[in-house]
Design a protein around this nucleic acid. Sequence first.
RNA 1: GCGCCUGUAGCUCAAUGGAUAGAGCGUUGGCCUCCGGAGCCAAAGGCUAUGGGUUCGAAUCCCGUCAGGCGCGCCA
Length: 640
Amino acid sequence: MKTLQENLRRRIAELLSGAYDLSGIEAEFTVPAERRFGDLSTTLAFALARKTRSKPFALANDIAARLQGQLPEAEEVRVAGGGFLNFFLRRDLFFRARLEAQARPLPPPARGEKVIVEHTSINPNKSAHIGHLRNSCLGDTLARCCRFLGYEVEVQNYIDDTGIQVADVVWGLLRHRRLDLEAIRRIPDLAAYLWELYAEVNRLFAGDEELAAQRREVHKRIEEKAEPEYGVCLHVAEQVLLDHVRTMEKLGIQYDLMARESDVIALDFFKAAAAELTGRGVMFPSADPDKRGCLVIHYEREKIEKIIVRSNGTITYVGKDIAYNLWKFDLLGRDFFYRPFHAYAGGHPIAMTASAPAPAAPGARFGRGRRVYNVIDVRQSYLQNLISQVLAQLGHPGAAAGFVHFSYEMVALTPACVRDMGLELEPGEEAKPYIEVSGRKGRAVKADDLIAMLEEKSHREVRRRNPELPEAEARKLSRRIAVAALRYFMIKFNLNTVIAFDFQEALNFEGDSGPYLQYAAVRLNSILRKAAAADIEAARGAASLAPLDGAERDAYWELALHLSLLETQAEYALAHHDISSLAAYAYLLCQKFNHYYHLFPVLAEPDPGRRALRLALVLLFKGRIETLLALLGIEIPERM
RNA sequence: GCGCCUGUAGCUCAAUGGAUAGAGCGUUGGCCUCCGGAGCCAAAGGCUAUGGGUUCGAAUCCCGUCAGGCGCGCCA
């Protein structure tokens, strides 16, 4: 399809070049809402009319006359709706090309461009929650999308293992619960244990100066590598990180590199960045008396000074993040050391940064991205914009252009949902549209709990429909369905839509949901199995749509046309940062398919020509939906 | 105060400046004489918050107004 659109665009430009100045105007094609308008539509005439200040309708008619009969792909060009140029494709030719492409799929074009996707990046001090799931599902789908389009992709997860959040639970373990490292090592599900503890210590800290001072002291001792705090901190960060990896692996989400903040600090990345920043005058001593002794950067957008180096000489989060992001583009002149961290069941390794040469270091080279996607929620826009500004100020326009804050709105809880979870509402919160998810306040749905609920519901449904299925099979199937439901739910909304989390909606397996997509694919596979058993063969080669009668031909053609748009859709999703459009496309395809096979059964069709054509469409659909659902991280089960 | 985002069916959301604003849930009514009902068909439900403007064309772009959310720390 892509080449079809490109061919059309090029031919049109050639045919019109003598008559019109098309500079700055590109023919973009869309599929019109109704087939009677045509198969592909372009608003070229409107754009040209605007430019030349002429009437679009007359212009469109002239263009149509010049194109008529000159395009090998198009049967006819018509003008409608005041100036739309509508193309009616040569259907048999098009359909044969689709069958051909299916039989001999081409690998994606190599882009020769490395893309880094940073996602997840959860503080390693407690289990993951639903807010983190949105991040990871978006990030993973983005990474899959880049890979599908031919980019080399590296997935990084940034671990803030030195922050105050980890210090909080270290304080809780050592001073509040009075455990030693050995006792801490014996805690079975540490991340879940800390989930409770983190909320508890934050309640204790609130308004207690004495405890707040203790907390600062613990933080300081961790920074100074003093025992037992430092050892407990390392243990906690590593164990919780492994817990996050396990949680995400359930959803088919994998990482290539864990980048640790402690290594950014130990290797003094900021020193290299600071030299550049001061050299270029981007960072300078503040003239503000309140910020005496601080080094700051002027944030142009909001005309404020952001502190990068505190008066005591320590570096803020932003400072470390600037250094880390310079490293991602290979603009720092320094590199981490690396060590193996973990290997997935399939063999894929995760590396972790290190601050000294490691004995069994992985061979892969990390970083050196041409484009960097930071999947971080919208609340960090300010800091991400600042980094982008700094990249430009340091004389790296390419990096500034390739730096993308892949920003999305938060997941929140409705007041009703908070109450259902047995949690207290603060005064005034009842009237709010939604309430922020907070691990600190213990106000969140744990990712593992939600996954378990989805598996439980899915298991009940599976059991009801397949009572004879062995239990192990039923469990495996339930997991796949749960993953589909969750991943689809997390990406189906626009990025700037706040998800006001609702159990009923998240647990929905009907209609606009992941399991609906799986169901369509499962039904389709069932048809193919029965066709194979009955030795029915699909049409191929010089197929023509002629054996189909009117209504079916239109429905058939409609589906074939939409099936061809997968690559176009993926490119659109990436270019516009619109992951949800892929979910919508998948849903549209499955709806169209369900509709089609209800009207036009394959196996019961007596006419062999028609039957072979229908089967060819089912096969075409199978190929496309498998690819598309893989892009969304959704597996297609044998049955369900 | 400054910066960013949002307002669309009863609810939750779509709609790439484009043709008659679409889905799901919920409601009402139909459909297995079947290739599996996690499905299909149909009905009801809309002054796209509001007032202007730009455009051949506005839910979409611009300016006001109203209502909500997020960010702006020598936390990370």
